[in-house]
Lab assay of single mutants.
Amino acid sequence: MDEEYDVIVLGTGLTECILSGIMSVNGKKVLHMDRNPYYGGESSSITPLEELYKRFQLLEGPPESMGRGRDWNVDLIPKFLMANGQLVKMLLYTEVTRYLDFKVVEGSFVYKGGKIYKVPSTETEALASNLMGMFEKRRFRKFLVFVANFDENDPKTFEGVDPQTTSMRDVYRKFDLGQDVIDFTGHALALYRTDDYLDQPCLETVNRIKLYSESLARYGKSPYLYPLYGLGELPQGFARLSAIYGGTYMLNKPVDDIIMENGKVVGVKSEGEVARCKQLICDPSYIPDRVRKAGQVIRIICILSHPIKNTNDANSCQIIIPQNQVNRKSDIYVCMISYAHNVAAQGKYIAIASTTVETTDPEKEVEPALELLEPIDQKFVAISDLYEPIDDGCESQVFCSCSYDATTHFETTCNDIKDIYKRMAGTAFDFENMKRKQNDVFGEAEQ
């Protein structure tokens, strides 16, 4: 370990593993360490099931009705991949897709007046949907046509809207959309967690709705994908990429100290040895004095023996409960997957309800979601602090990732990755940087 590296990475969460992969592909010498004996950090999948019970201090362990412990891979952080989103792009560019198998999530649902409705995925579904009345549908269709044709580089498509100054509230007004449709559009399509976006320039919202539609167009059922064997497969896929390009991995490796000289990182000390480096990437748990708390998320993992009611017996789905429907500031989400994804025993389902904490009784906040899941065989409640770095790391060369937020997709995580890359490399992130180099010394032969 007593060696000189360009970059040392602490923690094998998804953000850290993707950055480690990119740095290795770009010719950097990388050492990647984790104090845990497993990959994934906060974003790991726990197996066998006995391990999950232990982690949540349920000492009696799983009953026999849960089947074989080894058949379970339970995500600690519930997220899906947008089919046309940035993480899929990263997987394709790096060819990490060859280590993973994905399934399309069967449906996306939205909560309205105590019931759940399928988010329409085709024009026919939209016309048949009970989510809105006849005239509302016509106006909504006009709005969707506007979004589909919108091109930020072609003012002819703006229809009198200025993407940089017109607020989204004004765009909704222009198409005369009612409150329910606005809730549905902002939260189930643009996937905002709160209503803060309404008074911001509309460009980002329009682009988010386009991303949803384009992702949906790829597979038809929903815009989301999920990897077989759980999300823990993602960091491992990128760790393989890093290793192929010469990255060194050490799990179960305690970090005793991060060594600084004149305010700059110069190395990491572990078990009496020092590895030197020019730059350091880590998750917040490794540098508690360089991060601040930015809120909390509650996630309740529920094991069920039945599909969720009114989802047409889907073996995977997402449910969004827009905040307006339950008098909150932030949406509540449910991600459900099952034995069909090799993450649970035969006939079992895993539904994870999550939201940003707003009160001193977080469990009560998630109740509307839990009511949709009854009866629940077993619950595991996790309340996590969200951390963000206190500075950009440019001076110390210590670059810290943000905690995983309450969103049900990876777009915010990818933004964090691109942002850290830019601060480390001094140049904007470009997907081309992730391409495997042809015929290089570490390149794998085609399968």
Rank of each mutant, 00 (worst) to 15 (best):
S215I: 00
P227C: 04
K309R: 10
R35V: 06
G69C: 07
Y286H: 07
N153D: 11
I8S: 02
V147A: 10
V145M: 10
S65W: 12
Q57R: 08
C202R: 02
C17W: 03
T412G: 01
L372P: 04
Y117C: 11
D391N: 08
E358N: 08
G246T: 04
I376D: 14
L216R: 01
G11M: 11
G426D: 12
D419Q: 05
T165A: 11
R141G: 05
I352S: 02
E367V: 12
E60Q: 07
D199Y: 05
L370T: 14
R193S: 00
K221I: 14
Y339H: 10
P307L: 08
E365R: 05
S44W: 10
D101S: 07
I332V: 12
T166V: 03
A406G: 10
K348I: 14
R138C: 00
L211F: 08
N310Q: 06
A243W: 02
E3V: 10
R436G: 03
F399Y: 13
P375L: 03
N433V: 13
T311N: 00
E261R: 08
Y387H: 07
S285N: 09
Y111I: 05
I352A: 02
R218Q: 09
A243E: 05
S108D: 02
G160F: 01
M23I: 09
M168Q: 01
T12V: 06
V181E: 14
V110G: 04
K418D: 05
T94K: 00
P155R: 07
C317N: 05
R240W: 11
E4F: 13
T355S: 13
R141Y: 08
P375A: 05
E273Y: 14
E204T: 15
E214Y: 09
L31K: 04
E261Q: 07
A148S: 12
L216S: 03
S396V: 09
A294Y: 15
G160H: 04
E271Q: 13
E271Y: 14
T122N: 11
A382G: 08
L373V: 12
S305N: 11
L198P: 03
Q296L: 11
Q236P: 05
H32R: 02
D440S: 09
G85M: 11
L372T: 01
C394H: 07
L373F: 06
D199F: 15
D170S: 08
N130D: 08
N312S: 10
D416V: 12
T185N: 00
F431K: 13
K253Y: 15
I320L: 06
I77V: 11
G178A: 07
P288T: 00
V206M: 15
Q279D: 02
E432W: 12
N262K: 06
G160R: 11
T165V: 09
S285K: 15
S108C: 07
S43I: 06
E411Q: 13
P163I: 11
A344M: 14
D256G: 09
D71V: 10
K253E: 06
G443E: 10
R240K: 01
K348D: 12
K118N: 04
I281S: 03
I22G: 14
L386V: 13
Y219H: 09
P235H: 00
R141W: 10
R292W: 08
V206L: 10
L373G: 13
F56N: 09
G247W: 01
P48S: 03
P223R: 00
T407H: 15
K112Y: 05
S401W: 01
G230A: 03
C17I: 06
N433T: 12
V30E: 00
F175V: 03
T248M: 11
N130R: 09
A428S: 06
K422N: 09
F238V: 02
M336N: 14
V25F: 14
M82K: 00
Y39A: 02
N310C: 05
R218C: 13
I332L: 05
S222F: 04
S44F: 08
K112I: 01
T359F: 00
E395A: 05
D6K: 04
C202Y: 09
L31R: 00
D154A: 04
Y197S: 03
V74T: 05
Q179L: 08
K174I: 14
K278D: 15
D71C: 13
N342R: 15
S338P: 02
N252A: 04
K278S: 13
Y99T: 13
D419G: 10
F380S: 04
E432P: 07
C394L: 12
Q179W: 14
V110I: 06
G347C: 08
A126D: 00
D162V: 07
P201I: 13
G237S: 10
S167T: 05
K309G: 07
T97S: 08
Y349E: 14
E159Q: 08
E125L: 05
D162A: 14
D2I: 02
D392C: 13
V25L: 09
G160P: 05
Y197F: 00
M33I: 07
G178S: 11
S401R: 04
A428P: 14
G347V: 03
S285V: 06
S401P: 09
N327S: 09
D75N: 10
Q200Y: 13
D419A: 12
N262T: 03
C317D: 04
V7L: 11
L52R: 08
D6M: 02
C302R: 02
I209C: 04
Q200K: 00
I350M: 06
A369Q: 01
P254Y: 15
Y212E: 15
R55A: 11
Y38W: 09
V441A: 11
K278E: 08
L81S: 02
D154G: 05
E374D: 05
D416H: 13
C402S: 12
A369K: 03
S121T: 11
N415Y: 05
K79E: 03
A128N: 08
A382C: 02
I300H: 02
V265A: 10
M33C: 11
R138P: 09
G295F: 07
R290P: 06
D180K: 01
S213I: 11
D256I: 14
M132L: 06
L131P: 07
T360A: 10
S65A: 10
T412M: 06
E371L: 03
D392N: 08
G220C: 06
K221G: 02
Y421V: 13
I22S: 00
M90H: 13
L231Y: 05
I281T: 04
L131R: 03
D313A: 05
V206I: 08
C394R: 12
G232V: 09
Q318K: 00
L241M: 00
R169W: 14
P375S: 05
L211V: 02
V343G: 01
T355D: 15
A126I: 05
G13N: 14
V357L: 07
T311R: 01
D6R: 01
V266F: 14
N312G: 15
M434L: 13
K118G: 03
F442H: 15
R193A: 01
K115N: 07
K418A: 09
L91W: 05
S354T: 12
Y404D: 09
D313N: 11
L131T: 08
R436F: 15
G267E: 02
D71M: 13
E125D: 07
M260K: 10
K89S: 01
D289F: 10
T205I: 06
T166N: 00
C335W: 00
E4Q: 12
N207D: 06
R436Q: 14
S222G: 08
T359L: 05
G393V: 07
K103I: 09
E152L: 14
L177Q: 06
P163A: 09
K89L: 15
K278W: 13
L234Q: 01
E273I: 04
L177T: 11
F429A: 00
T165Y: 14
L59R: 06
H306L: 00
Y212H: 10
P284I: 14
V161L: 12
R292S: 04
I116K: 07
E273K: 08
D419Y: 01
F431C: 01
V147M: 03
H409R: 05
Q346W: 13
R276F: 12
G27R: 06
C302H: 12
V381L: 07
G247M: 03
D391E: 02
V334E: 01
G393Y: 01
Q378H: 06
P322T: 00
D6H: 01
E4V: 11
L177I: 14
L31M: 00
Q179H: 07
L14Q: 08
D361S: 10
T12I: 01
V297I: 07
L100S: 07
D2T: 03
K329E: 09
E204H: 15
V255T: 14
F184L: 09
